[in-house]
């Protein structure tokens, strides 16, 4: 299951699993956004390379207009994937507060 929406504050909120089956849906949603965007990943459980591609494509498009995509509330597992893929150097990322 995957869901993407915008909250009252204008943040993009994603939840569930951003995999190859759901990446096209996420891309269609993000293609409609403009300006500086913040994506809350607090409820995102899983991301694969298809999801990384969506983030990269969107970030590059927004940066071309002088804005960009900031990723917040990123959990430990997804943060590891960002590190392995070098995304930690391409995006502004805020980790989720440590649980427990």
């Amino acid at each position: 299951m995957f869901e993407i929406r915008q909250d009252e504050a204008g943040r993009v909120v994603v939840s569930g699993r951003l995999d190859a089956a759901h990446a096209p849906e996420a891309q269609v949603f993000l293609d409609d956004l403009a300006g500086h965007c913040v994506m809350d990943m607090g409820a995102l459980e899983y991301i694969s390379s298809a999801g990384l591609g969506v983030l990269l494509r969107t970030h590059k498009r927004l940066l071309a207009d002088g804005a960009g995509l900031k990723l917040v509330n990123v959990n430990h597992h997804i943060n590891d994937i960002f590190t392995y893929s070098g995304f930690d150097k391409l995006f502004e990322i805020e980790a989720a507060p440590a649980s427990g």
């Binding site: 390379s49 990384l52 990269l56 392995y84 893929s85 070098g86 391409l90």
Partner: peptide, 18 residues
């Protein structure tokens, strides 16, 4: 090259690497 700058990165190619 995961150290490449943003301008040189393109979607795709990361899956098997990961």
């Amino acid at each position: 090259d995961v150290e490449a700058p943003l301008a040189d990165r393109s979607p795709g190619g990361l899956g098997l690497y990961l």
